[in-house]
């Protein structure tokens, strides 16, 4: 930050304050999927990739002892942490920023480079955030639903967020090519591990459902909106009212 002239620092802070004070975008209730026919094609490709690559790989990876898999996944999560701190800061969520910073320090030092996760036991669980959320906090709307090749369900806003998180990730920027490879492999292994961990759930959506595209879309949007909402008091569909009172 010291290289930045004082004026631009003030300007940046001002700009952020304006963005945050504009208020978060409203959370959609409905489905907005104008590119559905194209998305469905991508979904078909993704399903094929899962069937021939990810699913079998996750079965093989499950053979590796659990503590080792957990270590790799912890390591991968720890490297994403600085990026979350940045997002917390530009969302003005200072509590989350300090909690995630403390978590990163504890896990990197006591947790041997992030392989162990002592921070969670010390009351510092990961407070997830990403640039997609930042855009939401800044007032950008969700935009249409998209299914991305390889990465799966997303929205326009979140796809932009993904790209920004990728190019601005401080861990990636500060490391050399060989270290970047370690970073990428650990993230991939974490994804493979998660596919194995939730194998029955993912299988039931991808292969047992008669419309896996619609299920994946619904589950993604529900979870993502739930995450962005960050409040407990929501109203649900009332089936009794739906069936008896009309």
């Amino acid at each position: 930050m010291s290289i930045m002239p004082k004026f631009s620092r003030v300007l940046l802070t001002f700009l952020l304050m304006v963005l945050v004070s504009c208020g978060s975008a409203p959370i959609n209730q409905s489905m907005n999927d104008p590119a559905e026919s194209f998305n469905r094609k991508v979904h078909k490709v993704n399903r094929g990739l899962d069937r021939i690559a990810l699913r079998p790989a996750s079965k093989v990876y499950q053979v590796v002892p659990k503590p080792i898999r957990a270590g790799v996944s912890n390591f991968a999560s720890n490297l994403k942490n600085p990026s979350m701190v940045i997002n917390d800061l530009i969302q003005f969520r200072l509590k989350d920023a300090s909690s995630n910073t403390a978590r990163f320090v504890v896990n990197s030092i006591i947790g041997v480079g992030g392989i162990f996760d002592p921070a969670s036991n010390l009351g510092l669980p990961e407070r997830y955030s990403d640039f997609g959320e930042t855009l939401h906090v800044w007032g950008f709307h969700e935009g249409p639903y998209v299914e991305l090749p390889l990465f799966g369900p997303s929205t326009l806003r979140n796809s932009v967020g993904r790209m920004v998180d990728f190019v601005s990730n401080p861990v990636r920027l500060l490391s050399e090519t060989s270290e970047q490879q370690i970073y990428a492999s650990s993230q991939t292994l974490k994804a493979v591990d998660q596919r194995g961990r939730f194998s029955e759930l993912v299988d039931s959506i991808m292969y047992d459902s008669e419309d896996s595209y619609a299920q994946a879309r619904l589950l993604y949007l529900q979870q993502r909106r739930e995450f962005l909402r960050k409040t407990d008091n929501k109203e649900y569909i009332d089936p009794y009212n739906d069936v008896y009172d009309k």
Binding site: S209, E210, D211, A214, Q215, L218, L219, Q222, Q223, R225, E226, F227, Y236, I237, P239, Y240, Y244
Partner: peptide
């Protein structure tokens, strides 16, 4: 709810995933 006459569960939401909503989609498609 107790609107069935007995105290019973009518929906479960696991980590934001609403059981009734997903089954509405699934049964609708079927």
């Amino acid at each position: 709810s107790d609107r069935s006459g007995e105290v019973k569960i009518f929906n479960i939401i696991i980590d934001g995933i609403n059981l009734l909503s997903s089954e509405r989609v699934e049964i609708g498609v079927m």
